[in-house]
Design a protein around this nucleic acid. Structure first.
Lengths: 191, 191
DNA sequence: TCGTACGTACAGAAAAAACTTTACAAACGT
DNA sequence: ACGTTTGTAAAGTTTTTTCTGTACGTACGA
């Protein structure tokens, strides 16, 4: 994993242990991003790598098959947590961790949540149209009117929520979120 | 699932189809919250229920065992997406969907992400301390100093990110997020 | 053009998760 | 106090997912 030359066995061990703790913590918590434990572990491992890695190197480091590395890296690149690096005269693909975690977080929402929002809004709108038409066709039917009114209200409320969620994620995409919640903690107001 | 009395077979079918589309869309996208498809489906079904449900009713409606309903509801209540309702003279537990989806969204982050942040920051801080001590103990060792400096920088950067993420989620918890990104779309600025 | 190396699709094996059945403890009504 | 009913724990089954090994298409170098 590294060049431990120039350090004692003990020193190298301490560094490795410190890294391992972080790697496992990151890996364990990456299920929030919908990735498996081992893919999270792969990400954590790559985080400490100072240069881009090949699939073979990852497999060696993780003690897993190259195929697994391929699928793991694919997942991570789809989420823009890892990206491919070009190096002249290098036949193998090289990958490295995207170092800007703020951007990684934002990208995750834009990629995953935005799509989810679109799907849900589409379904909601379609059902809403159907229900409204149904109500129009039989205005005298009180039972029908009541059911449709209840459902319609729920769907409209849900759409409003998703629109808000979309606007929130827009602030991630545009970077405006960092004006609203600054990266640097603002100094305490002294009064 | 409902009282279809007073409606024709066809009308009831249209309403059911409209609901089904929404239920499945919601269910499918709830993997973002880390719940299974069927639990998401359960949630979607309960969303259209106008009164609190018992486990038996859920089982009937979902065509699944009561035990599954029990665990599903447990998952949803832990996420505060569903809550228990008390009704006098009722032996069975009653549950209903939390209707405020903005709050549900916020709760999810406070519950899941906040914990993840705490765990990661703790691991990062611990490793950071160990590395700093290690560097202090052998200031002349250039190889060691270099490795530790690199890792230390990464860990510090990661902690800064998590602190930001924590502040972001604080705005969810306090409701301040709704001042930053209003629920109502602000009217277009006319200039 | 041929041969070799690389990444991944595919099929099968292993592991994990979801779901059901059974069993039981707690709570309630009589 | 007793008999029911309710919710869930535990064990077992089924389904799904993850991981490996093999096979193959593609691209590059000679």
């Amino acid at each position: 994993m590294n060049n431990w030359v120039g350090m004692t066995e003990e020193q190298a061990g301490i560094v490795q242990k410190a890294r391992k703790r972080v790697i496992e913590s990151i890996g364990k918590n990456m299920d929030l991003y919908g990735v498996t434990l081992s893919t999270g572990h792969l990400y954590g491992m790559m985080f400490f790598q100072d240069k881009p890695m090949t699939l073979d190197e990852m497999g060696e480091e993780m003690g897993m098959s190259k195929t697994s590395m391929s699928t793991g890296v694919r997942t991570l690149t789809d989420l823009k947590m890892v990206h491919k690096v070009w190096e002249k005269g290098m036949r193998k693909d090289l990958y490295e961790v995207e170092p800007d975690w703020y951007q990684t977080f934002a990208d995750f929402f834009v990629i995953k949540w935005q799509k989810s929002i679109e799907m849900n809004v589409q379904a909601l709108r379609k059902s809403l149209v159907e229900l409204r038409r149904l109500a129009e066709e039989d205005p005298g039917n009180e039972a029908l009117q009541k059911v449709v009114a209840t459902d319609t209200r729920k769907l409209e409320e849900a759409i409003r929520y998703y629109l808000w969620l979309g606007r929130l994620i827009d602030t991630f995409e545009s970077g405006e979120i960092f004006k609203l919640v600054p990266k640097e903690e603002p100094p305490a107001d002294s009064h």
